[in-house]
Design a protein around this nucleic acid. Structure first.
Lengths: 217, 217
DNA sequence: CAGCATCCGCTTTGATACTG
DNA sequence: CAGTATCAAAGCGGATGCTG
């Protein structure tokens, strides 16, 4: 992209990370850690392969990512975030929180990856009763199940089936997210296509953190 | 811009604010408050007028900004941030902090506005000795002077000459910023084209906050 | 197969001129 | 003041082919 030619910190940032696809590449590296070219492509459906190569080159030049030649038995190129790139993580978390309300609009053409959803829930939800014993909720949605562990004041997610979940939600992504962030009455689960198994009341345990954090100062 | 067609909170955010110029328009409204079309153009040198009109329409549709018809004696259209738009402020602050290190690269074609610089300093600097009496530093750089007030643990800036500054720095933007954020030895001010008048030691009073805040959690 | 480069049609942007 | 209209240039998306 052309530079904005402004001597402004925001404009200079956007000169580096404002191109189309660029922040989504950083997202993939934040979520997956060091990744191969091919794995990045899996997480960026629709990107033209030449564009991915070009963006990776630009990000490397800007010291946001680095490429390392992994030794055998991996024997491939890995792309990873530099320290400078890691500093974008809280920015992405903020973008994620800001974007959660937009997820009420799920379009039939939208690709889904469960690790995107899991991450959105981590940055958006909070444990409402930190002193109660931990509970686990299993979400059967997206391209693989998500285990959501609520306890000790924190939210953790992992991919794959949960062991002994207190509640299992099965159904489309949108209403399941809606129930979790409190925008959809859990009692209406069935009406919106969500199958529930277990104790529906554990949903009270999670609470939305609001779309934006208070400004730092 | 085309949608990324991803059911991911970050991608949904970028569908709204990822277009070229969009975040800079939000920056202008954050810094200036409700603004007229023409005033926005002044702060976005290089934008094509049709693009500004189009972006404003899109941002209005996305509930990031609203337009209000100001009554006489103003009698003009004002664009202002909605609540949703205000929630982007901390995001811009983060982008600003991340971008400050990139300001070592000032190009001759870069446009400068003093209120951009003042804001970058506000989000980047901190009062190193909150218990000492307040001091004021005047910066004669950019398109108008900046008064930098350090005291009570906070940094405040205002445009225009300062009253009774302890230190006045006159010269190009880059070395002045460098001296303030501690990347340039104040003793070398003269060698880099900066004129100093007053007590150079008050520079120890400000401290860089580092390029990125710790992750919230 | 991983990691690209090239080509081509289409969309977005930039520059400028013009208007209620 | 607050835009719209027009058109050339740049960027992007999709398909394909190449190389170790």
């Amino acid at each position: 992209m052309r530079s904005y030619d402004e001597y402004c910190a925001v404009a200079k940032s956007l000169d580096v990370i404002g191109d189309r696809w660029t922040l989504l590449i950083v997202r993939e590296l934040v979520l997956k850690g060091p990744s191969r070219y091919t794995d990045l492509r899996q997480g960026l459906p629709g990107i033209a392969t030449n564009l991915l190569a070009q963006r990776l080159r630009e990000l490397e030049q800007a010291d946001v990512i680095a490429r390392e030649e992994a030794p055998p038995p991996i024997a491939t190129t890995l792309f990873r975030l530099t320290d400078r790139g890691e500093q974008l993580r809280p920015l992405l978390e903020h973008l994620g929180r800001w974007g959660v309300p937009l997820m009420v609009d799920q379009r039939p053409t939208d690709e889904v990856r469960s690790y995107w959803l899991a991450w959105a829930l981590e940055v958006m939800l909070a444990d409402q009763r930190p002193d109660s014993p931990p509970v686990t909720i299993e979400l059967r949605t997206g391209d693989q199940p998500i285990a959501l562990r609520v306890g000790d004041g924190a939210i953790q997610t992992s991919l794959g089936a949960a062991t002994d979940p207190a509640l299992t939600l099965t159904g489309p992504e949108r209403p399941i997210l809606g129930m979790l962030i409190g925008m959809l009455d859990p009692a209406r689960a069935g009406a919106v296509g969500v199958d529930t198994a277990g104790d529906i009341d554990v949903l009270d345990r999670v609470r939305s953190r609001g779309p934006a954090p208070a400004a730092r100062r």
